[in-house]
Structures are given as C-alpha cells and as structure tokens.
Amino acid sequence: MIKARVTVTLKNGVLDPQGKAIEGALGALGFEGVDQIRQGKVFDLTLDGVDKTRAEADIKAMCEKLLANTVIENYTISLD
C-alpha cells in the first residue's frame, strides 16, 4: 500500500480571488503583515497493489487528466 499526497496550486501570475479574500479577511481579524496568500487543493490517495514507480506514474496521469488544470495550475506529488 502506497500513500500519496498531491498538492495543487495556481501558477504564478494567475489571479487568485480566493487567496485575496482570505488575505482581506485575515487583515480584518487583526492579523497584520500577511501578504500574497495563494489558495490550493490537497488530495490524499492510497494505492494498493502497485510499486512506487507505478504509483508515481499513475498519480501523475491522474493529475494531468483530472486533479489539476495544468493550463493554470501546478501540482506536486509526495509518496510515503
């Protein structure tokens, strides 16, 4: 069994309205000095019956086909 975490974030230069909203809300709550918040997504996956090399290839394919919009998003994969 292989556990993996995929983190998806917007590419630099892509407008992030949710990040801006969070930044504004934190300022309104009194948290000063917080700047340039980028919002993203995290996916935790468990794969059974595959080795590490196959798991990494499968997860990359999942990201390219579904989990990330690679036109505007980057993703990172970490395996346990």
Score class of each variant (00 low, 15 high):
residue 1 M to W: 08
residue 2 I to H: 14
residue 4 A to I: 00
residue 7 T to R: 06
residue 9 T to Y: 01
residue 10 L to A: 04
residue 10 L to D: 09
residue 10 L to Y: 09
residue 11 K to M: 08
residue 11 K to A: 03
residue 11 K to T: 08
residue 11 K to L: 03
residue 13 G to V: 12
residue 14 V to Q: 04
residue 14 V to T: 01
residue 15 L to E: 12
residue 15 L to G: 05
residue 15 L to Q: 11
residue 16 D to S: 14
residue 16 D to K: 12
residue 18 Q to K: 07
residue 18 Q to L: 11
residue 18 Q to D: 12
residue 21 A to N: 08
residue 21 A to K: 06
residue 21 A to T: 07
residue 22 I to Y: 03
residue 23 E to N: 10
residue 24 G to R: 15
residue 25 A to P: 02
residue 25 A to W: 06
residue 26 L to S: 11
residue 27 G to I: 12
residue 27 G to L: 13
residue 28 A to D: 15
residue 30 G to N: 13
residue 30 G to S: 14
residue 33 G to Y: 12
residue 34 V to P: 15
residue 35 D to Q: 12
residue 35 D to M: 11
residue 37 I to V: 08
residue 37 I to F: 00
residue 37 I to L: 05
residue 38 R to Y: 04
residue 38 R to A: 02
residue 39 Q to I: 07
residue 39 Q to F: 06
residue 39 Q to K: 10
residue 40 G to A: 03
residue 42 V to E: 05
residue 42 V to N: 08
residue 42 V to D: 06
residue 42 V to P: 04
residue 43 F to A: 00
residue 44 D to F: 12
residue 45 L to W: 02
residue 45 L to Q: 00
residue 47 L to T: 11
residue 47 L to H: 15
residue 47 L to S: 13
residue 48 D to L: 15
residue 48 D to S: 15
residue 49 G to I: 15
residue 50 V to L: 15
residue 51 D to M: 14
residue 51 D to F: 10
residue 53 T to H: 13
residue 53 T to P: 10
residue 55 A to Y: 07
residue 55 A to Q: 07
residue 56 E to L: 05
residue 57 A to Y: 05
residue 57 A to H: 05
residue 58 D to L: 14
residue 58 D to N: 12
residue 59 I to D: 07
residue 59 I to S: 08
residue 59 I to Q: 07
residue 59 I to W: 06
residue 59 I to F: 09
residue 60 K to A: 06
residue 61 A to Y: 00
residue 61 A to T: 05
residue 62 M to V: 10
residue 64 E to F: 01
residue 64 E to N: 00
residue 66 L to G: 00
residue 66 L to K: 01
residue 66 L to I: 00
residue 69 N to K: 11
residue 70 T to L: 07
residue 72 I to Y: 13
residue 72 I to A: 11
residue 74 N to L: 03
residue 74 N to H: 11
residue 76 T to F: 01
residue 77 I to G: 03
residue 77 I to C: 02
residue 78 S to R: 09
residue 78 S to D: 11
residue 78 S to F: 01
residue 79 L to F: 02
residue 79 L to Y: 01
